[in-house]
């Protein structure tokens, strides 16, 4: 009570403060509807879980009740069953393996060639001036548009799939690596020079260590794209892989197989992303201090 009285006293003296006391008087606003305000962790978790539960509930309601044609959308049970059959009777694990192999083979080649090139482009303007025009223009040509051309050139074998992954990832990888490298702070280079590092020495002792976490994040991002390129490549022409299974299932009206295939590729992408995310945090603890 005393405090309130004091406040009123002040308010009388200084009219400016009246605004404040009026604000104090407005009804308490709901915290969780405040823009950008944090909410308690448990509340966040419950809301997140409920969104998945609600989605699942609607799906179950529509399918088990028979409102929706199973050909259009099968029940959750059907999808799990077809998943089991795919693994036990149709050797789905081999399709998964071949898809993973294609993604990693193509992406590995892109990284092995693209990283050094990107680092050189980001470091030396002469290298950048030479490669930038070509790489920048090819970058905007979608890799999927090249598929017919590659089939003409190299057929429908493994080489063609790997090439598509390579083309889909290489050019962006080079340019984004170059950006990461050229963003290394000038002061770091200058500090190294005044500590006796040579012009070429900074490449190894400053530019590389400074840029590597950003480059790893770039690799993580682009690996995500590779998963969608491989499905496109396998949908167009392939006898194996998750994409080819999806296409075959469509021809045989096996909706549940299609959905299981999509879920599998999603899980693979998510898994590879998580592994890289954790690995990056573990590898560069200095980048995530306070």
């Amino acid at each position: 009570m005393e405090k309130v009285a004091k406040k009123q006293g002040i308010a009388e003296q200084a009219p400016l403060l009246q605004l404040q006391s009026q604000q104090n008087g407005t009804p308490k606003r709901r915290k969780w509807l405040q823009p950008q305000e944090n909410i308690p962790y448990h509340l966040y978790l419950w809301i997140s879980v409920s969104s998945i539960v609600i989605l699942f509930a609607i799906w179950s309601l529509l399918t088990y009740s028979g409102i929706v044609d199973p050909l259009f959308l099968p029940t959750p049970t059907e999808i799990i069953q077809s998943g089991i059959t795919l693994f036990t009777e149709f050797g789905f694990i081999n399709d998964i393996a071949i898809t993973i192999y294609r993604v990693f083979a193509g992406f590995l080649i892109a990284v092995v060639i693209g990283l050094p090139l990107g680092i050189l482009m980001g470091t030396f303007k002469v290298v950048e001036a030479f490669f930038e025009p070509i790489i920048s223009s090819i970058r905007y040509m979608p890799a999927s548009a090249f598929i017919p051309l590659f089939i003409l050139w190299i057929g429908v074998g493994e080489m063609e799939k790997i090439t598509i992954i390579f083309v889909g990832t290489f050019f962006s990888l080079v340019l984004m690596t170059a950006v990461e490298v050229s963003n290394v702070r000038r002061e770091l280079l200058e500090a190294a020079y005044t500590l006796g590092t040579s012009t070429f020495g900074v490449l190894r002792s400053v530019i590389l260590p400074a840029a590597i976490p950003g480059i790893m994040e770039t690799i993580r991002l682009i690996l995500g794209w590779a998963w969608s390129y491989i499905i496109v490549a396998e949908l167009v022409a392939s006898a194996s892989g998750i994409g080819s299974l999806i296409l075959e299932s469509q021809r045989m009206l096996k909706t549940s197989n299609i959905i299981f295939g999509i879920l599998t590729i999603g899980a693979l992408g998510l898994l590879s992303d998580l592994i890289l995310k954790v690995a990056i945090r573990k590898m560069f603890p200095w980048n995530y201090g306070r």
């Binding site: 702070r185 002061e187 770091l188 200058e190 500090a191 190294a192 005044t194 500590l195 400053v206 260590p209 400074a210 560069f284 200095w286 980048n287």
Partner: peptide
């Protein structure tokens, strides 16, 4: 000739 810069010139990975 040793140099101390205004700020942020330490090597963050070291």
């Amino acid at each position: 000739r040793g140099m101390v810069f205004q700020a942020y010139s330490l090597f963050p990975w070291l």
